[in-house]
Simulated assay, not measured.
Amino acid sequence: MTSGASDVVLIAYDGSENAKRAIRHAGHFLSASRAVVVTAWEPLARQAARISGLSGVMQPGWVPDVSAEDAALADAKMINEEGIDLAQKAGLQSEGRCIETITTVWAAIVDIANELDVNIIVTGTRGATGLRALLHSSVADQVLKHCHRPVLIVPPCDD
Rank of each mutant, 00 (worst) to 15 (best):
A90K: 03
D111K: 05
V66A: 11
L30Q: 06
D14E: 07
H148P: 01
C147A: 15
A49S: 10
A12M: 02
K20Q: 08
E81F: 01
A26R: 08
R21P: 01
L73I: 07
G27D: 03
A45N: 08
W62N: 06
P43N: 00
I99S: 02
K89T: 07
N18H: 08
G27T: 07
A19F: 00
S3P: 04
S67V: 09
V154K: 01
T103N: 09
R149L: 07
I102A: 11
K20L: 07
T123N: 00
T2I: 12
E81S: 09
N114D: 13
R21F: 06
A87M: 04
L135D: 02
L92F: 09
A87D: 06
E69T: 15
S33H: 15
R46Y: 04
N114L: 08
V143W: 01
S31T: 11
K145V: 12
A108T: 11
S55Y: 07
N119T: 11
G91A: 01
E115L: 10
R50I: 10
L44R: 06
V63H: 10
L144H: 12
D159S: 12
H28C: 08
L44T: 09
L92S: 04
K20A: 14
E95S: 15
W106N: 02
W62Q: 10
E82T: 13
L144A: 11
V8L: 10
D14H: 01
V118A: 01
A32N: 07
I23M: 00
L134M: 10
S138N: 01
R97K: 13
K89C: 05
A71I: 14
L73W: 07
Q88P: 00
D158S: 13
M78I: 12
A133N: 05
H148M: 05
Q88F: 04
R126G: 04
P64E: 12
E42I: 10
M58P: 05
I23L: 08
A140G: 07
I102T: 14
P150A: 11
